[in-house]
Simulated scan of single mutants.
Amino acid sequence: MQHHFRKIAKIALVFVYLVIAAGAIVRMTGSGMGCPDWPKCFGYYIPPTEATQLQWQPEREFKKGQVIIVDQTLQVANADFKTASEYDPQNWAPYTKHDYALFNPWHTWIEFINRLFGALAGLATLVLAIFSFRFWRHNKKITLFSWLVVFGMGFQAWLGATVVYSVLAPAKITVHMVMALLIVALLIYLIHTTKNSQGLTYQKNLAKWLLMAFVATMVQIILGTQVRHFVDEQIDVVGETAKHLWLSDVDWEFYVHRSFSIAIVVLNLFLGRQIWKHKLGFSKINWVLILIGIEILTGVSMYYLDFPFATQPVHLIIASVLFGVQFYLVLEVFRAKKFVRA
């Protein structure tokens, strides 16, 4: 039973990471408003591929809720109807969530795929939660946390809608990202708690240092989102092609983010040395160090090489994977510490 549960949990975790990866690509390509409404896309379950689909045409059937663009505004069909020879404004109502009314098929489908992965992730977590009822008699915590993941996914979907309605407000994007990491943490906890850990030993103060490293990673991720907001604002000012100007006139958050990475490297190298020296068996520290190395390489390349292609989404994706691996390592160490005390 635990084996099947962990397999479903891992599938759900993969889908959540695919959502994070898709979200990173959405930000890189500027496709966040590719679908200006939610949960549909221009009022369609399958989004349009051509601009003509969003234009008023005579003798054309529209379904209630479908959207067209008229004079740079979004107009929503009031009911199912067929158009006459001339445009009748009484059949339409203006979209009131925001005034963004642009269509780019490339952006639309990138955002649609992002939402599709989100739906698949939600379905996977729902299956996990239903399966978790088998644990109710002997471990209610697994069932409760599984359903907490489902409610978290629902809340995350609502956050996604607010991000769209706000026309990609930076603060809302940050909250959206933090919530995604919280869902990752819950799934990793469920995967870990249903596994029998063997071959792990504990050394005094290891948990304290590891927890400190994990908190440092969280702080670094939050600082990174602030730097990303600054870059987004610079893009609006200098344009997408002037990459050499994206990090001009940076504020204090950038310098803290850059310098803090040195402390993170030193701290995790110290942890790795302790684990290797005393043969404690926590092999995931190797992945932590590899991921930190990739983070530094992508960060340096963005600064000195003017944002090479895909370095931004890779930087974000690796940060989220680092968070997950490090959190699993924290759980392993605290379990080993608990066994030592027992």
Results as ranks from 00 to 15, higher is better:
321 V>T: 00
300 V>F: 07
325 V>L: 00
88 D>S: 09
285 I>G: 13
336 A>D: 01
296 I>F: 00
137 R>C: 12
82 K>Q: 15
226 Q>W: 03
293 G>R: 06
222 I>Q: 07
310 A>I: 00
295 E>G: 11
146 S>I: 00
143 T>N: 12
203 Q>E: 08
158 W>G: 13
266 V>M: 14
30 G>R: 06
46 I>W: 06
204 K>F: 04
267 L>Y: 04
149 V>D: 09
215 V>G: 03
172 K>T: 00
88 D>T: 05
183 I>T: 12
70 V>K: 15
71 D>H: 10
58 P>K: 14
217 T>I: 00
255 Y>P: 06
165 Y>M: 03
20 I>R: 09
245 L>V: 00
257 H>E: 15
136 W>G: 07
284 K>V: 01
7 K>H: 03
23 G>A: 02
266 V>N: 11
91 N>C: 10
201 T>C: 05
202 Y>F: 02
125 T>M: 10
304 Y>P: 02
242 A>N: 15
277 K>I: 01
203 Q>M: 04
104 N>R: 12
222 I>A: 10
193 T>D: 10
141 K>R: 12
216 A>Y: 09
257 H>C: 15
177 M>F: 04
239 G>Q: 10
241 T>M: 14
291 L>F: 02
280 L>A: 12
33 M>D: 08
284 K>H: 10
216 A>S: 13
167 V>Y: 06
91 N>L: 14
263 A>K: 09
250 V>R: 15
23 G>D: 03
126 L>T: 05
309 F>V: 04
28 M>Q: 14
319 A>F: 00
238 V>G: 13
146 S>F: 00
51 A>Q: 13
8 I>V: 00
51 A>P: 01
77 A>N: 10
221 I>R: 05
188 I>S: 04
40 K>Y: 11
260 F>V: 07
257 H>W: 14
100 Y>T: 09
62 F>R: 13
